[in-house]
């Protein structure tokens, strides 16, 4: 079946991955040229301590983002689903709205808040609490804030969907049998919305681990993540074979995560919620 979509994806998604595989087995010559010589060197360098450190930090930040989005996103989804009333659609709309806005500009808006001459420092300065600006940008916390800010809508939507689907009569039954509100939440609501939590976690984790703009604008050297590291390999050092190997590693990880998730039977939910 050679539909236009299949052809397009073959040309501009699958073949490029193949080209990356090809490049990852080559070597870098002087001044960033490519030496056409088959080698496993790039994959050996995956164990480079600097790379491992950045990889570990990316993993940590992505996981913290998922955790924070789960807590905050659950609260919002729960509130909208159960107490939204006639404002339900408006509130949902407010959750979706950021999808239509520029991620670059949204991350930039945090620079206005956190930079040395930014909102927070100016405010603290005029109130006399500080004498010189506190460095708030270019660290892990700034990156984490940016990640949560960018990805929390991805968590709210699937959580909301699974809360909406929750059969309310089960909760009423539990209530009639004497369960307290806390018991109902932890023994019924939470387990029954596991699907939404899982879907949201995947939707947040997958883009967060490979994020590029946020570490680029808010991270600096201390907040370096794997995405920025890879881009430096391509555009800075022009070490394309190594950059290819790292990109493929990142891609494999994300696809593997997705595969495991689909096998756990969650596929439908994640994709339906993105529509």
């Amino acid at each position: 079946m050679l539909s236009p979509a299949a052809l397009w994806l073959l040309l501009f998604t699958l073949i490029p991955i193949g080209v990356a595989v090809y490049y990852s087995f080559l070597t870098r010559g002087p001044w960033g040229t490519i030496v056409y010589e088959f080698t496993f060197d790039s994959y050996r360098q995956v164990l480079d301590p600097l790379f491992l450190e950045i990889f570990a930090r990316s993993l940590k930040l992505a996981m913290l983002t998922v955790a924070a989005c789960l807590v905050g996103g659950y609260a919002v989804a729960y509130w909208i689903a159960l107490y939204g009333g006639r404002h339900k659609n408006l509130l949902l709309f407010l959750v979706i709205l950021p999808f239509w806005t520029s991620p670059l500009v949204r991350v930039y808006s945090w620079m206005i808040i956190l930079s040395d001459h930014g909102l927070v420092n100016t405010f603290l300065g005029t109130t006399g609490l500080i004498d010189s600006p506190v460095p708030l940008l270019h660290n892990e916390t700034a990156v984490l804030i940016g990640l949560i800010y960018t990805y929390v809508p991805f968590m709210i939507l699937p959580l909301y969907a699974s809360l909406e689907r929750l059969d309310r009569s089960v909760l009423e039954a539990a209530s009639d049998l004497g369960a307290t509100a806390t018991e109902r939440f932890f023994k019924i609501t939470l387990p029954l919305t596991k699907g939404g939590m899982l879907a949201g976690s995947v939707l947040v984790f997958a883009p967060a681990i490979g994020e590029f703009i946020i570490p680029e604008l808010l991270g600096g050297a201390k907040g370096m993540m794997i995405g920025k590291f890879i881009s430096l390999k391509f555009l800075g050092l022009r070490h394309w074979p190594l950059g290819s190997a790292y990109s493929l590693l990142l891609l494999t990880m994300v696809l593997l995560l997705l595969y495991l998730y689909m096998r756990a039977g969650g596929g439908k939910e994640a994709f339906q919620e993105r529509q």
Binding site: L9, T13, P16, A20, P207, I230, V254, L255, L258
Partner: peptide, 19 residues
């Protein structure tokens, strides 16, 4: 396969297309 571009980190998509 249709879902791959949605799932792929943007960075990986950009880099592989550059290649």
């Amino acid at each position: 396969i249709l879902y791959i571009p949605l799932i792929m980190p943007d960075l990986v998509m950009g880099v592989t297309l550059l290649l």
